[in-house]
Design a protein around this nucleic acid. Structure first.
Lengths: 153, 153
DNA sequence: CTACCAACGTTGGAGTTCCCAACGAATGAC
DNA sequence: GTCATTCGTTGGGAACTCCAACGTTGGTAG
């Protein structure tokens, strides 16, 4: 009789799965997304919009494709995100004179003010997310997490 | 002039966002899901199915609602998952004599064999996921991660 | 100069996960 | 016996991710 057919061979299968790094990361990520989404929603904003707004703030006038590469969003989704941001006058979308294929995305003053508020909300949500850890543990956790992520490159 | 209007006040906004726990957790989680999904796909299986199969293995004959509560899947999605598993003869779905509202979900021998293979594939994927960390670091990482997740309760 | 290939923004569509509302059937409490 | 609850099921929607195609524009090799 093979191990896998013996009754009880797979017991604690659930417990094993739920302590797997991938499972825990999923739950932690879901919690982070929920906390951040709730925080940003208090200012009528969503996570991708916050990320793109931040990227525009850093990269000055920048093409959509470059924004996509930097933030990891799909070009298709970038269109919609920028449509939303532009509709709220947080960014301006003007044709790039030096390359007429590109749109030059720029942060508006309103966008800069909004970003300051969003950054605060995002920080608070992340504070809550890691509330269970001491400052030293958070630093360690982030260092380990960064190495796991960078393995992806 | 307010800080938020001064040019450069929000520089490094992107870098700040991308080092936020929520951002890193999202990326790590996405990587884990991709690795696990690819591994399970080699056996023609998907993540939720693996989780439910594991839960059935542990909980013996069990109702769908109980499976949903344990694994966190929505009752609606549980229907589809069990349909798939049943179509492959990995679980059996029989009416519960003691409560005719319930379905008694049981693991079949084929399900038990399949689960053994899936567990192996899942473990390998998680090995790859944490490849950047030493065994001691992995243990520490999982301990911290667990505390972050349990804060959710 | 003319082909050709690559990049750009855009549109359309699909897939996954998560969540909510409703329904008929069945159960349990009062 | 009435009523609230639970069960499995169906339907639908929100949010994020990803891929394929198209017309336009730019750069390049011949």
């Amino acid at each position: 009789m093979a191990d896998e057919d013996r009754p009880g061979a797979s017991t604690a299968a659930l417990a094993r799965i739920q302590t797997l790094p991938s499972w825990l990361l999923n739950r932690a990520s879901a919690r982070g997304r929920r906390l951040v989404a709730e925080a940003l929603a208090r200012d009528g904003m969503r996570m991708p919009h916050h990320a793109v707004l931040s990227a525009v703030a850093d990269l000055g006038p920048v093409a959509q494709a470059e924004l996509g590469r930097t933030t990891g969003f799909d070009p298709k989704d970038m269109v919609g995100i920028l449509n939303d941001l532009q509709a709220q006058d947080l960014v301006s979308r003007a044709p790039d004179p030096s390359d007429r294929r590109k749109n030059a995305i720029t942060l508006t003053p309103a966008g800069r003010r909004r970003l300051a508020r969003l950054a605060k909300l995002g920080d608070e949500a992340n504070e809550t997310l890691l509330a269970a850890l001491t400052p030293a543990e958070r630093e360690l956790f982030l260092a380990l997490l960064t190495r796991v992520v960078e393995e992806d490159a």
